[in-house]
Design a protein around this nucleic acid. Structure first.
Lengths: 268, 268
DNA sequence: AGACTACGTTTCACCAGGTGGAACGAAAAT
DNA sequence: ATTTTCGTTCCACCTGGTGAAACGTAGTCT
């Protein structure tokens, strides 16, 4: 049987304690987890270095930090979106001959691909993309989704994401505000040069154009037309199929509103 | 300088990758983190055992699991509640001679204490409670807050919390549905016998009665009157001060609605 | 069919990395 | 002034984590 890692278990004990009980002192954590204080100190220092925990300056108490990964899925949205959208994306895919991805909001301005019509044999691109979370600022899906949010929400999400992301994702976050107006007027987004997600795994380099899916006054997700970069120019696809893509997004949004009105209500 | 723990760093690398990119294979994780596959396998197995990651049966791909700690704070609510409520709780505390705690919703049916009037010299109880997250089902604050939510939200939060919590918190979660009606008709809650949070650190055993803070049609938090158990009977305090406690909760809710109406709007 | 590749997993000798009891100085409570 | 509790440092010990190599299997190419 595969072994497990004791240090990782201990770090989870500590994080669960802080997450459950809120702010904690070192001694209290040592007592709760039944670990010696030096061990807790070292693990907490590791977590603080990465901002998974943060420490107030005066007292040294620990609390959950700004870089701790956050998940805020509206419960049921993913299932509802798949239910309302799967036939529409299949029809769009058949009509265009291209792959179609459907992505749902998972909170904080992030998306997760929840359904796709991609087939390697038909489209020549990596098909196993369900569950994948496209980059918020570099992918077509991410950009068009953020651009479709109301200004206040977008600013908040952009700020939080910029604080969390690193490397070229962070750089893209800084550039993003300058791109928003362009995306909004054009009504669609394309992926940033140099960003391919994990499509390099196999298959050719994919290109995509994406539009947001809005339901009521809420932005609930986004859909993409995806094709092999070497086969078609982006301009050609936009000219031929953008209107149909936008139409499909509207249909999905309307159907979601009709079938699952409770998802669009306030939650608190 | 204090050392750090390499295994913990590696586990954070893995969790951040899965959180950022979504579903990942073992090999992909090994490549992203630049770690050997057996190392990634052992760490992932540790995380899967605790449900911080989960694995689909057919393909062995990893995704964030159901027990990964979730944080869903409405941004700004804590600050707004402190701003709208701090003078009101000071007045209540002065009028009653008891400690008063103010707690804010942090999502998923959880609360965090955001302000308090407790002073050890005056009330004889542990004063450093700000940041503390009372038990959802065992504390007075937690129970009254959950009971005040609309039925649908309460059922969803109860289910999710029951899946996450362990030990006596879990047992209390199973009992909770039977207590809801009683709390709603009485209009306040008391803590479960045997639950004292961390008050045992020092000071005497505290007792508390709590009421929910509602603003518009949303339940945004809760407030408590807290005293030393050996000094007064619960019945006495209820008789003398419950009405005043409820009045304070109403005042805070109304003030929050007046000063921060945007917090009560839908967010997506 | 056979060759090949890529996957997740097991093994095991090695030793770096993590460990924790003891001791420390500082701060707070008594 | 005394005691307690806090977070932190030290360091000898040795276990728990490591990772190259090998394995079985599943799927893909020729």
């Amino acid at each position: 049987m595969t072994k497990t890692n004791r240090s990782v278990e201990r770090s989870m004990d500590i994080l669960e304690t802080v997450s459950d009980l809120g702010v904690c002192t070192l001694g209290f954590l040592a007592q709760q987890t039944a670990l010696p204080k030096p061990t807790v100190l070292r693990i907490c220092k590791t977590l603080v270095d990465r901002r998974w925990l943060s420490q107030s300056k005066n007292d040294k108490r620990y609390r959950i930090g700004p870089r701790f990964p956050r998940m805020e899925t509206t419960p049921g949205l993913i299932d509802a979106l798949v239910e309302s959208g799967s036939t529409a994306i299949v029809e769009l895919s058949a009509a265009t001959g291209l792959g179609v991805d459907l992505a749902a909001s998972i909170g904080e301005g992030r998306l997760e691909i929840v359904d796709t019509t991609r087939q390697f044999a038909l489209h020549g691109i990596f098909p196993d993309c369900v569950g994948y979370r496209p980059s918020p600022f570099r992918s077509a899906l991410g950009c068009v989704f953020l651009a479709a949010l109301d200004t206040e929400t977008r600013v908040r999400c952009t700020a939080r994401l910029a604080a969390t992301l690193t490397g070229s994702d962070r750089a893209a976050a800084m550039e993003f505000p300058r791109k928003v107006d362009d995306i909004r007027t054009k009504g669609f987004a394309v992926r940033e040069k140099g960003y391919w997600g994990r499509a390099v795994d196999y298959g050719g380099v994919p290109t995509a154009i994406s539009v947001a899916v809005r339901s009521g006054d809420k932005t609930v997700g986004a859909i993409s037309l995806v094709w092999l970069a070497e086969q078609y120019e982006t301009g050609t696809i936009v000219e031929k199929y953008l209107h149909r893509l936008q139409k499909t997004a509207q249909v999905i949004g309307a159907q979601l509103a009709a079938e699952h009105p409770q998802l669009l209500l306030p939650s608190m």
